[in-house]
Write a protein that binds this DNA or RNA. Structure first.
Lengths: 177, 177
DNA sequence: TAGCGCATGTAACGCGTTACATGATTAC
DNA sequence: GTAATCATGTAACGCGTTACATGCGCTA
């Protein structure tokens, strides 16, 4: 899809190993994109073959050797081109919970109510995390440079999306039971 | 993922051909789930083999024969079981626009601004459609039966999501340029 | 006469997940 | 001694997209 670009974006910050990237997906970018380590490793190899990344083998003792990857000039150009050219279609939600709601009837009402509750608490958890990050990393949005402003705006989007979804859960629950 | 269940859900309304389903994805369910006709046809065959659907070949003249599919008892049971058992993890957004925002800098600011504008107008278009459906099909939500209440709640979610996203676009635009 | 609607299909490819695998070090 | 962390990989499978294919009838 666009994992290549996601990885190159993460490497704007500097050299990273596949392992680093996998962890990175658990924090910053990970709120809207994730990938397994298998996928990451194979994508890194592809990108290196294309000359968009360069690889540096770093021997270690006690641990397996690691390979750090870095954006090449060519890679940076490819990333810039992607931003210029790519048309961004709005994503499809593909949420199983919504499919279940299409099946709502007397027999499954309580089950579905329960699943809405679960969803709400997951959202609440995410929201708390996002808020924490906002306070600790972005307390003064006026002072951010461009790149961090972009990241901040994504975070804000995540926060508002979570709030909206939580409100929707409440609304759904007030309608069924 | 769960295309099988989505199709079975669509068949709750009655017999449909693959072609009908493909069209159905352009309206009702299609706001949050979509599938190509190739995918639909192959999934239908799989489901029939499993005994979850039964197929009825209907000869036509001037047009190719069509095959109508119907949920079997077994299929209905499988669908109910799915609702009982399946854990619904929150979806990942995987939105390329957000990846681009992570790349925000002086050189691409205007391009990205443009893409946000495009996104906003797509959202506006969807929102208009959802509102139209709400007014024409769900003018009296209190009087809906269970199943249609579920569908209504999904629609409401779509409307609020679109509104929220539009507001976010405006916010982003006020921050960059 | 060109294109759209109806109706179904095959083939190739890439994306993504799950399972399986290794092997030392460090923390509880 | 049990589990987690570090660090990378292979293999098998299924989901999803794109391209290609057929062929009649109707409308502009």
């Amino acid at each position: 899809m666009a994992l290549a670009e996601v990885i190159m974006t993460a490497l704007l910050e500097g050299r990273k190993t596949g392992y680093d990237l996998a962890k990175y997906f658990d924090v910053s970018l990970g709120y809207f994109w994730r990938a397994s380590h298998q996928q990451i490793y194979s994508e890194l190899k592809k990108l290196e073959k294309k000359g968009l990344l360069s690889a540096f083998k770093i021997p270690q003792q006690g641990k397996p050797d690691k390979i750090e990857y870095q954006l090449t000039e060519q890679g940076k150009t490819a990333l810039d081109d992607w931003i210029q050219s790519s048309s961004t279609k709005p994503r499809l939600v593909k949420d199983e919970l919504l499919v279940m709601l299409y099946n709502l009837d007397d027999s499954n009402e309580l089950e579905i109510r329960q699943k809405i509750l679960e969803r709400k608490s997951q959202l609440q958890k995410s929201l708390n995390l996002y808020e924490k990050i906002r306070i600790s990393n972005f307390s003064k949005p006026e002072e951010l440079d461009k790149r961090n402003l972009g990241i901040y705006l994504v975070l804000i989007g995540g926060i508002e999306d979570a709030r909206g979804s939580i409100a929707w859960c409440d609304q759904v629950m007030s309608h069924i039971s």
